[in-house]
Design a protein around this nucleic acid. Structure first.
Lengths: 226, 226
DNA sequence: CGAGCCGTTGATATCACTCAAACTACGTGG
DNA sequence: CCACGTAGTTTGAGTGATATCAACGGCTCG
């Protein structure tokens, strides 16, 4: 599969003409990334944006003492590091690979040219950022209003529904957590230990069943009513 | 001052030609807003975006039990409700006036036309959303990593610096909190009572002085080192 | 085989939320 | 002029949830 094909599959660039996409592809750099690779650190000057082709990346802000707040975990097809391209020039957070894969780098100047020349692309980009803002709004809400068990329940329900949508599935065989529990704890803004305790409690209460990373929702009402 | 002049003063629309601005102004609706007025509720269908001319607006997400997580408090010149224009069509949060003023409404379709026709406007809009994302990143970090006293300290330092920048001031006469303490508590993700206690503690520790809404930073190092 | 990451469980202390009450300032209307 | 309501703020007391420290077993990978 050529790079141009890859770009066409991405919603963000679906509106580009073949010629535009070819031009864009020529300016892209792909690179493999190993677990632990740092894409950028908070405050770094941003030369462009990244798009993940395979693997997983966590975007986070770190405190001096080493603790970190995970803002997002991105999977294949998702862009990250856009904020610095459009405003401020410096990354507001750090990004690190947590599962090996491949990434694509898009130089800032070229991206800006493309956007300036293609209103549809600009609107898609606006849509992508808006989606991110929605996610943040939900995150702030859960962090402010809910305690860990509720946050966990909300995450499980959301993830379950996403998976069901993708697989189209009636399959009530449960779903796989696609990130480690340590990462999930960070995403929920809590400690690994607390997450572990909450999960076992949910199992005891009969709300879910848990086998490794496989989760099955048993009592949806219960989770919603937490 | 005409509506067109108002638009020119806004960074968002500075790039528009006079003719474009006139056209835009014709499609805008201005309206006074009283304290307590609801602009929109989470989930409402969005017909356009709002820009605040005077007064203050809080944007929040509400829980069934009445508690709410405040996402932003906007002042004059700031747009809100954009997310729904670019993605999803429904507002992800609610907006309520907390200080009487005037607002401006911009119909969605007209705004989209303008953006499609003006790459510079599109880029400014992207910049505005990116700025919002930065603010959210900082908010998630403080909610996750810091406790209330530290969040408060971070807020005070930030606000102080903003004010000093605006007034250009060497004036170390302190600054005014421009929102009520109840609102501030919501913004910090804590309860009114807790905020009150934290403030008096900071005064006791000699880090700040406090008189009504006037705050003076006495020991910057101390606040930074919390 | 050892190092590192992952996951779990236990014990402890602390923070912050909740409920409850009073106190200020401010305006209105009797 | 005072009684009253409302909004904003402060203080007190009690309780529950969570972070933190610590230790352990399983797992994979070099």
């Amino acid at each position: 599969m050529t790079l141009s094909d890859v770009l066409r599959r991405m919603p963000l660039f679906a509106s580009l003409s073949d010629a535009q996409r070819e031009a864009l592809a020529e300016h892209c750099l792909t690179a493999p990334c190993a677990r632990g690779k740092i894409f950028f650190m908070e405050g770094d000057e941003a030369a462009g944006l990244y798009i993940l082709l395979e693997g997983k990346v966590k975007v986070f802000r770190a405190a001096p003492d080493g603790r970190e707040a995970i803002l997002h975990v991105f999977g294949p097809g998702e862009p990250f590091g856009e904020v610095a391209v459009f405003q401020g020039g410096k990354f507001p957070a750090s990004a690190e690979c947590v599962e090996a894969g491949r990434s694509l780098f898009l130089p800032r100047t070229h991206l800006l040219e493309r956007i300036a020349g293609d209103p549809a692309l600009a609107l898609r980009m606006l849509g992508a950022l808006s989606l991110r803002l929605r996610a943040f709004a939900a995150k702030v809400e859960t962090l402010t209003l809910m305690e860990t068990p509720q946050r966990l329940a909300a995450y499980l329900l959301l993830t379950n529904d996403e998976r069901m949508e993708q697989t189209g599935g009636k399959t009530d065989a449960g779903f796989q957590l696609d990130i480690s529990k340590a990462l999930l704890a960070g995403l929920l803004g809590t400690a690994r230990e607390t997450l572990s305790r909450c999960l076992t409690r949910l199992v005891e209460q009969g709300a879910i069943s848990l086998d490794g990373r496989t989760v099955r929702i048993l009592d949806r009402k219960f989770l919603e009513g937490l």
